[in-house]
Design a protein around this nucleic acid. Structure first.
Lengths: 176, 176
DNA sequence: TATTGTTATACTCTATAACTATA
DNA sequence: TATAGTTATAGAGTATAACAATA
């Protein structure tokens, strides 16, 4: 039962149950690990996500990819420029819309992705080392459900009215 | 059974099982919602985390807070400057170390945090709307376990050797 | 010598605006 | 008129380096 906390005693913090804090800790750790694995790949972790779509999904347009990855379409242009230069993906004309470019992987891209995924899988398991196999599966499944749910609802982008006065005289003076 | 996907049909994507993608989707959605709730709070979501620690934990130094939140100590200085200016927290001298400043909340800070937490709780439930109550609890618990585990192991920061050649002639030409 | 906190500076990353070409 | 993609530019956010005070 419970989590086995290593010998190094860390003073208790009240953020353990905080969704934002736990997500932040995990996401930062993931990025750090994924950055290391994808150090030589243009675009790093996001380059790998693009490559994954290009290899395994029906060809998408640049804007569709941008929305799926949660980046601006201008950023997607830069990311794809580098992936194309590295010979990992290609921009193909869309027969049904001459404005659009469909992104597809090259053979080289497929090989690189296989290599990356293998090592990333190991790093991820290490990242989730605090959980047993069953818990890891449950976490992955739950995350998939939430992300799928959010991704499906996103287009409408309903952030219902939440901005209200909290009694703070705010004046962000510093750049951070 | 399973997740109820809304009417809007989204083309299938191969990232559903991708830890990085699911984390990214959830974390971005969380930040978007939390940004709205904390729009008037200096530092936004991170300001709220600082406030939480200042209210509920034993007083911490600025550097301890910075490490806990995963930000640079210089950023923490800016964040605290604004929170102090807004009258939400105070910098108190540390009796045991005259270099250090202990961060404690003011009465105003406590009141503001109560207000924020109430509304943030609602927003979070909306965010996890794709899961039933039981699943939400399980997700929160699993995230807490992983984050605690990672946070405890972090000090050593062991990103074991993962950088190796993947056969990509990389040259990031563009700024992104 | 190392650490805490501060400040100024430089850098990275992202978003904005303007443009072309298609629809 | 609206959208896909590109490019240049400005902005936000971050880290780096230097410093003073203290350990």
């Amino acid at each position: 039962m419970g989590v086995s906390v290593p010998a190094t005693s860390v003073p208790p913090n009240s953020l353990g149950g905080d969704l934002g804090w736990t997500l932040g800790v995990l996401f930062r750790a993931y990025l750090k690990a994924a950055d290391a694995v994808t150090a030589e790949l243009p675009g790093g972790p996001r380059g790998r996500q693009i490559l994954t779509c290009a290899v395994r999904d029906e060809p998408r347009s640049q804007s569709a990819l941008a929305q799926l990855l949660g980046v601006d379409r201008t950023v997607m242009t830069y990311l794809l420029d580098d992936l194309v230069d590295a010979g990992l993906v290609e921009r193909r004309p869309d027969p049904s819309d001459r404005r659009s470019r469909l992104i597809v992987a090259t053979e080289h891209g497929r090989a690189v992705l296989d290599n990356l995924d293998h090592r990333l899988g190991q790093v991820e398991e290490h990242l989730l080392g605090g959980l047993d196999d069953d818990e890891r599966d449950r976490l992955r499944t739950l995350l998939q459900h939430v992300a799928t749910s959010i991704n499906a609802a996103d287009p409408v982008s309903d952030t219902c009215e939440v901005v209200q006065d909290i009694g703070v005289t705010s004046a962000r003076k510093h750049p951070y």
